[in-house]
Design a protein around this nucleic acid. Sequence first.
DNA 1: CTGAAAGCGCTTACAG
DNA 2: CTGAAAGCGCTTACAG
Lengths: 330, 330
Amino acid sequence: MITLKDIAEKANVSVMTVSRVVNGNYSKVSKETAKKIQAIIEESGYVPNYSARSLSSRNSHIIAIITKKEDALSDPYNSKMLASIIPILQQNGYYTMVACLNDFKDVTQHLHAWKAEGAIFLGLFEEDVMKIKENNQIPLIFTDSYSTVQQITNIGIDDYKGGVLAAKHLLECGHRSFAFVGIALEHSSVSQKRLKGFMDTINAADISISEEHILYDQDPAVLAKKIVQFKTPVTAIFTTADILALNIMDQLIINAYKVPDDYSFIGFDNLPISYYVTPKLTTIAQDIEQKAQLICETLLRHIDDPHLPCEKITLDVELVKRNSVKNINR
Amino acid sequence: MITLKDIAEKANVSVMTVSRVVNGNYSKVSKETAKKIQAIIEESGYVPNYSARSLSSRNSHIIAIITKKEDALSDPYNSKMLASIIPILQQNGYYTMVACLNDFKDVTQHLHAWKAEGAIFLGLFEEDVMKIKENNQIPLIFTDSYSTVQQITNIGIDDYKGGVLAAKHLLECGHRSFAFVGIALEHSSVSQKRLKGFMDTINAADISISEEHILYDQDPAVLAKKIVQFKTPVTAIFTTADILALNIMDQLIINAYKVPDDYSFIGFDNLPISYYVTPKLTTIAQDIEQKAQLICETLLRHIDDPHLPCEKITLDVELVKRNSVKNINR
DNA sequence: CTGAAAGCGCTTACAG
DNA sequence: CTGAAAGCGCTTACAG
């Protein structure tokens, strides 16, 4: 392994001088020596040791992306986020460490161990947000969090509007009886906001949606069964995730029901898959690439200037009309 | 920031003793002092500095996952691999750094800078394989490579067999005229092996496939047009990637052709999406989770014992029959 | 069972 | 423009 010292000896200069040219501080080195050193570095294939650099400069250039263990990375939404974020960070000179951590203690230990300069949280760390924030004095970007903690930076989407758009479209298409299927447990605030937007809009049209018609993620076959056996039948279903809609649609079709003739569906996310299915899924779209871009920009900005105040950013969503909603106006 | 030294002072012992209990070498420390130190560590929330550890022990515990810049991480296959690999490495005490690098120089620099203990390459680094190997004396796992370099460890699938299975199934279903669409440029050896298996099997049935019928990845609309305008028409198309098949099918359907009535399709990979489309895609399945598991196991084994010889591992593939192939035997 | 010394490869802060 | 000294937080190798 070749070190600064080796280069210094070959060039007959001090370690300091080599360090300067390695780091591009040419202003403080004569052109000749700089050139000579450059040449030796080139030919020897010297690569600085980042651990040493990190240790002495307190500057790791590492950014941690953290997901929960369960939803993990297999979720296509998270996969897409990862794929979008990593190249951006890399282009800006940062190295990305990806970890799946549940507990705030693990998060803190991970961030401290590597002296990460910033962290991005994919997935909900609601209860731990405060503790994570308290224990880590580096820029932290949360996503899609509705944590009431004020002192965090969060980048999310307008989930409420998503629900509104879905309801409006369904109403416009003549639907009057609705079901809702949320992706996560009862305490997913994202899911709740979407439901609220949906409900408010429907209520404003003097239609209500009963308890019976509010379902939560579980075996798609069970979900489909519940839907077809509703005491009060339903013509349209709003789902908080494309994949959820697709799974239910699949079960319905297996059982000889027709989509959208028997049941109309609206999904959420506009994942690529929603375009490929038949019928093509009408869905609420969020722009993941844009979100990733904003996450990185915001994080980098906060790393450059640690005194920046926290930001709460909400990105827009829009309805993408495709073929899974039937127009039942005659 | 709290360090070993701080703990040592509080506990009235040497740094060395604290280091021992941090690293679990209890055998060399009296129970009492160990306990006392444990308590102080707990209460102070001490986390070892991994850069320092890495620097002095030459033991980074970092594993690099490297993809090419173009196919990058957006490809669903690579996404799935990432999602499967990271948790396994983490469970084994390793930290994962993900980077998108094209040039072997960048790879070398990245690996050296962080003193990675191992690396996994997703995507083809064919021409650079040798140079990467020469410049990095750590366990390296390549995937899906047909590099002729003997001294590398590679984990791939039986691409040839994939082609054979596709051809056999199509022949059994009565098809006699075929097209092939490969995913990558002409020098993707994976694509070529699949084509070879396909061709050999078809030739064995006394059928040939002309130049005209061998297509390469490009705008799906163009591909679809070429297919419907073949001078010698075709009833079945074998594609080296599910997503390719789906895109072409989509274009065909838009133009009022029927799948599988007008054209039958077989894809490759068995990505989740292939189940959701209509018609559900018949495809050659590879078990990505199993592959990821094997990649990690092999890498870890080679890290534990650097003298292990290189391994060339080929995983099996199988045909998954769904609804995109029409049986045209009367 | 415990510790003092040296060193990992770099940077910071200072002196000239 | 150049360099000697000290130090980042840990581990290795040795001594007792």
